[in-house]
Protein backbone atom coordinates (compact mmCIF):
# COMPACT_ATOMS: atom_id res chain seq x y z
CA UNK A 1 0.00 0.00 0.00
CA UNK A 2 1.50 3.33 -0.97
CA UNK A 3 1.32 6.54 1.03
CA UNK A 4 -1.59 7.85 -0.95
CA UNK A 5 -3.68 4.81 -0.16
CA UNK A 6 -2.72 5.05 3.48
CA UNK A 7 -3.76 8.67 3.48
CA UNK A 8 -7.14 7.89 1.95
CA UNK A 9 -7.74 4.98 4.26
CA UNK A 10 -7.15 7.28 7.20
CA UNK A 11 -9.31 10.07 5.83
CA UNK A 12 -12.23 7.80 4.98
CA UNK A 13 -12.35 6.47 8.51
CA UNK A 14 -15.76 7.28 9.83
CA UNK A 15 -17.22 6.93 13.27
CA UNK A 16 -20.32 4.81 13.16
CA UNK A 17 -23.00 4.99 15.81
CA UNK A 18 -22.91 2.41 18.52
CA UNK A 19 -25.69 -0.06 18.00
CA UNK A 20 -27.86 -0.28 21.11
CA UNK A 21 -27.96 -3.74 22.60
CA UNK A 22 -31.71 -4.02 22.23
CA UNK A 23 -31.53 -3.28 18.53
CA UNK A 24 -28.78 -5.85 18.13
CA UNK A 25 -30.93 -8.35 19.97
CA UNK A 26 -33.98 -7.51 17.90
CA UNK A 27 -32.18 -8.01 14.60
CA UNK A 28 -30.58 -11.24 15.73
CA UNK A 29 -33.95 -12.36 17.04
CA UNK A 30 -35.44 -11.62 13.68
CA UNK A 31 -32.90 -13.96 12.12
CA UNK A 32 -33.90 -16.72 14.49
CA UNK A 33 -37.56 -16.18 13.73
CA UNK A 34 -36.89 -16.22 10.00
CA UNK A 35 -34.75 -19.36 10.28
CA UNK A 36 -37.55 -21.03 12.19
CA UNK A 37 -39.89 -20.25 9.35
CA UNK A 38 -42.00 -17.75 11.21
CA UNK A 39 -41.18 -15.10 8.68
CA UNK A 40 -42.51 -16.72 5.60
CA UNK A 41 -40.68 -16.25 2.39
CA UNK A 42 -43.31 -14.22 0.64
CA UNK A 43 -44.54 -12.37 3.63
CA UNK A 44 -43.64 -8.75 3.73
CA UNK A 45 -41.65 -7.75 6.68
CA UNK A 46 -40.40 -4.64 8.25
CA UNK A 47 -38.97 -3.73 11.57
CA UNK A 48 -40.15 -0.42 12.83
CA UNK A 49 -38.13 1.86 15.01
CA UNK A 50 -40.03 4.77 16.39
CA UNK A 51 -37.95 7.64 17.62
CA UNK A 52 -35.85 6.10 20.25
CA UNK A 53 -33.96 2.95 19.66
CA UNK A 54 -35.01 1.80 23.10
CA UNK A 55 -38.46 1.16 21.72
CA UNK A 56 -37.13 -1.01 18.94
CA UNK A 57 -37.22 -4.35 20.68
CA UNK A 58 -40.82 -3.97 21.73
CA UNK A 59 -41.88 -2.81 18.33
CA UNK A 60 -39.98 -5.57 16.66
CA UNK A 61 -41.64 -8.10 18.92
CA UNK A 62 -44.93 -6.92 17.53
CA UNK A 63 -43.86 -6.62 13.96
CA UNK A 64 -41.39 -9.29 13.06
CA UNK A 65 -44.04 -11.78 12.22
CA UNK A 66 -44.53 -9.83 9.08
CA UNK A 67 -47.14 -7.22 9.66
CA UNK A 68 -45.50 -4.35 7.87
CA UNK A 69 -44.08 -4.01 4.41
CA UNK A 70 -40.54 -3.38 3.41
CA UNK A 71 -40.94 -2.38 -0.16
CA UNK A 72 -38.39 -3.06 -2.77
CA UNK A 73 -36.63 0.17 -3.60
CA UNK A 74 -38.52 1.29 -6.65
CA UNK A 75 -39.28 4.54 -8.37
CA UNK A 76 -42.87 5.65 -8.07
CA UNK A 77 -44.96 5.16 -11.17
CA UNK A 78 -48.47 5.72 -12.43
CA UNK A 79 -49.67 2.34 -11.14
CA UNK A 80 -48.84 3.53 -7.62
CA UNK A 81 -50.81 6.71 -8.25
CA UNK A 82 -53.76 4.71 -9.53
CA UNK A 83 -53.87 2.43 -6.52
CA UNK A 84 -53.72 5.41 -4.19
CA UNK A 85 -56.41 7.26 -6.14
CA UNK A 86 -58.66 4.21 -5.97
CA UNK A 87 -57.96 3.63 -2.31
CA UNK A 88 -56.48 0.24 -3.12
CA UNK A 89 -52.96 0.85 -1.88
CA UNK A 90 -51.74 -1.49 0.79
CA UNK A 91 -51.66 0.34 4.14
CA UNK A 92 -48.17 -0.99 4.56
CA UNK A 93 -47.13 1.23 1.68
CA UNK A 94 -48.15 4.39 3.47
CA UNK A 95 -44.59 5.37 4.31
CA UNK A 96 -43.60 5.23 0.68
CA UNK A 97 -46.71 6.68 -0.94
CA UNK A 98 -47.83 9.27 1.58
CA UNK A 99 -46.15 12.19 -0.15
CA UNK A 100 -48.29 14.78 1.61
CA UNK A 101 -47.08 13.42 4.92
CA UNK A 102 -50.42 13.40 6.70
CA UNK A 103 -50.29 9.73 7.56
CA UNK A 104 -52.97 8.58 5.14
CA UNK A 105 -53.24 7.84 1.45
CA UNK A 106 -55.73 9.89 -0.52
CA UNK A 107 -56.29 11.74 -3.77
CA UNK A 108 -53.80 14.43 -2.80
CA UNK A 109 -51.10 11.78 -2.56
CA UNK A 110 -52.07 10.37 -5.95
CA UNK A 111 -51.77 13.87 -7.31
CA UNK A 112 -48.31 14.29 -5.83
CA UNK A 113 -47.21 10.93 -7.16
CA UNK A 114 -48.32 11.90 -10.63
CA UNK A 115 -46.42 15.17 -10.33
CA UNK A 116 -43.34 13.26 -9.39
CA UNK A 117 -43.78 10.75 -12.19
CA UNK A 118 -43.90 13.41 -14.88
CA UNK A 119 -41.24 15.66 -13.38
CA UNK A 120 -38.39 16.45 -15.74
CA UNK A 121 -35.98 17.10 -12.93
CA UNK A 122 -32.79 15.36 -13.87
CA UNK A 123 -32.25 11.85 -12.64
CA UNK A 124 -28.67 11.09 -11.98
CA UNK A 125 -27.52 8.10 -13.91
CA UNK A 126 -24.59 6.29 -12.63
Amino acid sequence: MDDLEKLLRARFRQDAPEVPADLDAAIVGLGHEAAAGHVRRRRRLRLVRIGSVAAAAAIVALCWLGTRALDEPRTLDVADAWRVARGLADPDETARLDLTGDGRLDAADADRILDRVVSLRPRRDR
Binding site: L30, V39, L47, R49, L70
Partner: peptide
Protein backbone atom coordinates in the same frame (compact mmCIF):
# COMPACT_ATOMS: atom_id res chain seq x y z
CA UNK B 1 -26.73 8.28 13.30
CA UNK B 2 -30.46 7.68 13.58
CA UNK B 3 -30.83 7.16 9.87
CA UNK B 4 -27.89 4.75 9.91
CA UNK B 5 -29.52 2.65 12.63
CA UNK B 6 -32.80 2.56 10.72
CA UNK B 7 -30.99 1.49 7.59
CA UNK B 8 -29.08 -1.13 9.53
CA UNK B 9 -32.18 -2.87 10.78
CA UNK B 10 -34.02 -2.63 7.50
CA UNK B 11 -31.08 -3.98 5.55
CA UNK B 12 -30.97 -7.08 7.73
CA UNK B 13 -34.75 -7.38 7.67
CA UNK B 14 -34.37 -7.45 3.90
CA UNK B 15 -31.73 -10.14 4.23
CA UNK B 16 -33.95 -12.27 6.45
CA UNK B 17 -36.78 -11.97 4.00
CA UNK B 18 -34.83 -12.42 0.79
CA UNK B 19 -32.29 -15.00 1.85
CA UNK B 20 -34.06 -17.86 0.05
CA UNK B 21 -33.68 -16.03 -3.26
Amino acid sequence: NELALDVLQETFAWLARRAPD
